[in-house]
Design a binder for these strands. Structure first.
Lengths: 218, 218
DNA sequence: TAGATTGTTAATCGATTAACAATC
DNA sequence: TAGATTGTTAATCGATTAACAATC
């Protein structure tokens, strides 16, 4: 039997939409905290920085959670999106590479509040071991496999220098990590089925500089 | 006279291409440092993590910098891309918000090597003033206008908490900053002509978690 | 019922890709 | 000349947007 064409859970949500769902969720949390019970697609779109047609189209992939003539119930929609993107679950995460950036990530409060739990900080440098960052011990990189297995870690964060990143990724994948957030400025090679997302701070600045240069030359 | 339809410098490069040029440039730098003089589109594409058709299409927006039957001269192409995205220039940058993330950004070596020069670190908290981070004094946020004017700052980085970010952006724009890299988890409102790019660490993790959840349910 | 707003359709736009003529 | 590889075309794919029928 080959792969089923469409399984029950396989409502396919476009990548562009997936990337916006966390933005909508954050806007809904803000609205909820400010006491707003109901909002229109126009209002939510404004809070999320998109146009309302795009918002409604995106939400339509999840289902019909609004009421025509009325709008969306803020808390209900918030829950539906949170469930869809897995934010109702607990996600154990390891961070490898505890330099400046690793420190900042370990201390970042936005992770915990979204269901991400930093279960370990690893670094290859023995001088950093047993340092405590954000209440978590820094441990040897060689503990990786043990920790991934013991804690059921599915997501790894790489904040090492570029030259270490591929090795770290290989070890993570071998240990069973299937999703990697990579801050090192290299292209990682991983087997099919492993997801990598990359954040490159200087690339973002370079894109701004390109447009800036064009403005100056206009 | 209304705006000229096509000015000499207005060869329009698609956004998706602009976002990849820094990736190609980084791959070329690596090739150059490893002593490679020439490369094919196939080789460069592999190093950059894209397919070769996309690479050639992207490069075609810049001009014809390759040789049929031969490939690309690594250093020549490197220079052409660097020039196109403004990396041959010096870009003075201010960072506002010197918490954990601000520290990491101030210390990030990838900025300097790409022409970005951190000319000031600003924070509203007086306790942080005169602290020295990465060789630069932390100064009061109120010095912003003075510094932007004196140093010709065109790019600002916001690494403050969410609730301060819009105010910081408003002040930056008023002071003449036209490009903003925003790490605060809010949607910034800025006037037309001002560019904002956003990096949201927890959103990237949430996108991974969404796919992870799907793998688990497959 | 009249007004408001969703969810969906269809048109448009932009990005990707394969294929190949041009040309070194 | 024969082989290699670019630069470009055209087809395909996916994302955005405007418009509006459905419906509260």
């Amino acid at each position: 039997m080959t792969a089923k064409a469409t399984s029950e859970s396989a409502r396919d949500i476009p990548e562009a939409t997936v990337a916006r769902l966390p933005v909508y969720l954050r806007a809904l949390v803000t609205l909820s905290e400010s006491g707003t019970a109901t909002c229109s697609s126009e209002e939510l779109a404004a809070a999320a920085g998109v146009n309302s047609a795009k918002l409604r189209k995106d939400l339509s992939y999840l289902g019909s959670y609004g009421t025509r003539g009325v709008g969306y119930d803020v808390d209900y929609l918030r829950y539906q999106i949170a469930r869809e993107i897995g934010q109702t679950q607990d996600w154990p995460v390891v961070i490898v590479g505890i330099g400046n950036l690793g420190h900042a990530l370990a201390n970042y409060s936005g992770f915990r509040s979204r269901g991400f739990r930093v279960v370990a900080l690893l670094d290859a440098d023995p001088d950093r071991h047993h340092e405590v960052v954000a209440g978590v011990d820094v441990r040897p990189f060689d503990d990786l496999e043990k920790i991934v297995a013991a804690q059921g870690v599915a997501i790894g964060v790489i904040a090492t220098p570029a030259n270490a990143a591929q090795d770290v990724a290989d070890r993570m994948v071998a240990a069973g990590v299937r999703s990697i957030l990579n801050f090192a400025p290299v292209v990682l090679n991983v087997p099919e089925g492993v997801d990598v997302r990359k954040v490159d701070l200087s690339i973002e600045l370079q894109i701004l500089a390109y447009h800036e240069q064009r403005k100056a030359n206009a």
